[in-house]
Design a protein around this nucleic acid. Structure first.
Lengths: 256, 256
DNA sequence: GGCAAAGCTAGCAAATTTACTAGGGGGTGG
DNA sequence: CCACCCCCTAGTAAATTTGCTAGCTTTGCC
């Protein structure tokens, strides 16, 4: 029996680069009746204040050109209720803005989400499947299939495909993730200099500023200033809180 | 068309408690030819030194009685290569000890894993599917179907069911997770007292020992001692490293 | 009921951090 | 080519942390 997932994996192996693989994923979704696709990746889903962080990678297929701008620069990502559900759950889910009542989406929707809901209704992308992909390092991706102008019962029909779309999403992510460059993989929510990050990591490993100064062959004053500037950029009150936030933003590269 | 996943969800809704739901999941797996099931959950998959942490919940169905003891108290969990692959990946996968070559399992297997491999061969549980479930909080579960005495081509046949088993695993976890009690959800790798944790959390929020003393109406010496003891238990060199490790073990409850 | 262990209480000297100060060099844009 | 901004360099007084000290209370077990 021909396995569609093996065929998809073969397609992904043959594709060269992210854009080709996105096209392959789009074709795989089309076989299930989807017209559009969204894939995004973020090293850290939430800021320390609980706000969703704009992803470092957002890719669209067959979607209005202004969506990327609204989501990445217009603040729409932070008020996207589907993204909120995905960030807090690990289970793939069908969503519909036409009939959100009784669903996970319906439970999180609030007035602040209205601009996103309006936009998706205007562009007739009111129905889809989202696969949350939480990764072992705390990073996070979503893989979404959307149907433009869905028929009345398309949402119900989607449930038949949830298992397949979920696996396609995981296979796709597994294929593209190894090629992400360091800028995509690193949280840009707070921008620290290389010296600031280096000093934070050594501090998280238990070295005092004096020990770091000796290790890096620099004056203690220099190390203290790097740490102080990092504390300020992280909005922390002191060095300890800065380390807690740096850990949250996964800037420590596992150092502890 | 009858949706087996909706039927499974209904079954889980009707079940009372974790054990009943495990039975329901076992029955769902049996429909795909599996004979046995494993589900486990851990608030933190890895210790700060990279070693796998024994899960706070491990449930087995139709598996040798001594497996729980070997895995939870005998150190086998730490040398289980399937668990290592699952902890580092998010994609569900088929595994076979009969023919591990060329698979993710084969790439991680090393001599230190031999006791686990021997045990699974002795108990004829050499083939299965594992669904890693990484959660948004950093916690982690696995859902595994196993076939005892698999026929020669069972591994290949399993690929047909990977999508279905993956969704079943996610649905099952989603059904049981809300009822986990705090002891299961809290990392027990390092045991700190309530006062130690309280002082660590307040420290991570940027309060000095003096400020904490004022807030808790205690002497500074008292706060300092709680923090010092926590530092020792975490094996840290100082307060900053203790916070980095507490964050790693998710003892801070998001505090930063 | 008694004993031991664990947890919480608190003080102090030495070491470290915090929060300010200031200058030089490199890169980018006009 | 020059000016401005950013990053890296470094010093110091006041505040805080570290790492030890010791005693009291509570809890659990025999």
């Amino acid at each position: 029996m021909h396995d569609p997932f093996v065929a998809f994996e073969t397609e992904l192996d043959r594709a060269h680069g992210l854009e080709d693989r996105l096209d392959a994923a789009q074709a795989a979704l089309a076989a299930y009746g989807f017209t559009s696709m969204i894939y995004d990746y973020t090293p850290v889903p939430f800021a320390h204040d609980g706000e969703l962080i704009t992803p470092s990678l957002l890719k669209l297929r067959n979607i209005e050109a202004n969506m990327a701008d609204l989501w990445c620069r217009g603040g729409y990502y932070q008020i996207d209720p589907v993204q909120l559900v995905a960030a807090k759950s690990a289970t793939p889910f069908v969503w519909s803005y036409a009939q959100p009542e009784g669903s996970a989406l319906g439970r999180v929707m609030a007035p602040r989400h209205a601009p996103v809901v309006s936009y998706l209704k205007d562009t007739r992308m009111t129905c889809g499947v989202t696969v949350p992909i939480h990764l072992s390092g705390g990073d996070f991706a979503t893989f979404t299939g959307i149907r433009i102008d869905p028929e009345g019962d398309f949402g119900a029909a989607l449930r038949q495909h949830l298992a397949a779309i979920s696996l396609i999403g995981h296979i796709f992510h597994g294929a593209v993730y190894p090629d992400f460059d360091p800028r995509i993989r690193t949280c840009q929510h707070v921008k620290l200099t290389a010296k600031e990050i280096e000093c934070l990591r050594l501090t998280a490993q238990g070295l005092t500023a004096k020990q770091i100064a000796h290790k890096l062959d620099r004056a203690v004053g220099t190390i203290n200033l790097h740490l102080t500037l990092a504390i300020k950029k992280l909005g922390a009150k002191n060095r300890v809180q800065a380390i807690a936030r740096a850990a949250h933003y996964r800037l420590l590269d596992g150092a502890c």
